[in-house]
Design a protein around this nucleic acid. Structure first.
Lengths: 238, 238
DNA sequence: CTCTGTGAAGTCATTCACAGCG
DNA sequence: CGCTGTGAATGACTTCACAGAG
């Protein structure tokens, strides 16, 4: 165990490992080696060991890792043992979709407030959890009262920097941004941007590349089922 | 100009450059040097030049790049001159939010179909564009009839791989995945995953790190405005 | 003299390969 | 023996720095 700076690539992988371990635990697996973990989820075993070794010696030589113990360690390292409270700025389509998204809970996040500047929306309550929509001008107060520590920016690119400035002023240190802009944050404030535009354009680039020779008949070497799913649901209904 | 493999990091930056150039063009700027571009959007000028040089010699020594010409080149390189047609699998909160999202259009993407397995939803039409919701079992046919070339996966993690298999069987080569799972794609199929869980947990990790000393009084060195925004809107209303 | 395009250097990340613990 | 933890080797990406075009 070192006390170097940990790369974000490493911490992102810790999330992946934790997810895998949860699946293993559900399947009743008690112990797993880095090799087996790598095989099962196609990861690299050396990388798993190296990533984990930054934080401690969690394994037993000759045996592997205890699934449950490693889960606990990763949960603590990622700070998922403490609950987080989320405020979403922008009560449009995306903002309300996120407010209803059940996936937050698994990581110990709770959405407690929405913000907007549209009078029609302010004062309403959204979704089954009846999350209140506040006036965006009251961000600072609501952040304090509701003990919000994570903000989500779900507003148009044009106003995203202004919104970021406001939530930073309110003392927020962690922000998830969905607007397609590169935002400037103060030191000590972490912004993660999920840029749909970049991802789409990356796919477009891929499709535009002629060098990847696609098989003209897609059925030619298809090893997958084409049966209809029986239990598909919307993302919110998980 | 080489014909090496282009890294995805490079193509992602091309998207960013294009976005910056669009802003410059709107501001009436006709010509810009890599240095000025880097200063204005805090990028690295050498990286800009290197990224562009993979695709050609677009600049004029002693002068810089023509904003309009470079925009045209990047648009073509990224394949944004040809329109793309998108099908979204999963007509839940996220799927319908994406179907209404106006940001697709700027990159020449049009959402033409939704898919679900919920009888209540199938046959309906969503949003102002009245995008039809199809039975997910009819993916292959609709992909063909509607000439869909990009799929979006907005279903729970549990069924995401099955959905991917189906859209691959339908001949789709480019997929944007919102489910928090690592999906396995056939050769020749590009999957981009936007993993909300990883991003959130990354923020959680950041908040859990004690070494980043946050200023206790957030107002102490705040150079930003805290005025209320006047024109904030939902993401869909851009 | 300015700014591009690009080898070379530097930095960071992944993978290999093995000593050594259990 | 099997597997972890880790230096050492490789590979990838970024930044430097400058020759040479305009």
């Amino acid at each position: 165990m070192k006390s170097e700076k940990i790369s974000e690539l490493t911490t992102n992988r810790l999330s992946v490992y934790l997810r895998c371990l949860n699946l293993l635990a559900d399947a009743g697996i008690k112990t797993i080696s880095s090799q087996a973990l790598a095989d099962q989820f196609n990861l690299n075993s050396a990388q798993i060991r190296k990533d984990l070794a930054y934080f401690g010696e969690f394994g037993t030589r000759g045996v592997g890792y205890s699934v449950d113990e490693l889960r606990r360690h990763l949960t603590e390292i990622l700070g998922l043992d403490a609950p987080h409270r989320v405020g979403i700025v922008g009560a449009g389509n995306l903002g309300t979709a996120l407010a209803n998204y059940q996936g937050f809970a698994a990581s110990n996040f709770t959405v407690v407030a929405l913000f907007d500047n549209d009078r029609e929306k302010i004062g309403r309550h959204v979704g089954p959890a009846q999350i209140p929509v506040h006036d965006v001008r009251r961000v600072a107060r609501v952040v304090r009262d509701e003990r919000i520590d994570v903000a989500v920016i779900a507003v148009p690119a044009r106003v995203a920097q202004r919104v970021l400035n406001q939530v930073m002023s309110a003392g927020i240190k962690a922000v998830l941004n969905f607007a397609p802009v590169r935002l400037h944050a103060r030191l000590g404030v972490k912004v993660k941007t999920m840029d749909l535009t970049i991802s789409l354009e990356s796919l477009s680039y891929y499709l535009a590349q002629p060098q990847v020779q696609c098989i003209t008949n897609p059925r030619a070497l298809l090893p997958y089922e084409e049966i209809a799913p029986r239990e598909e649901q919307e993302l919110s209904g998980k």
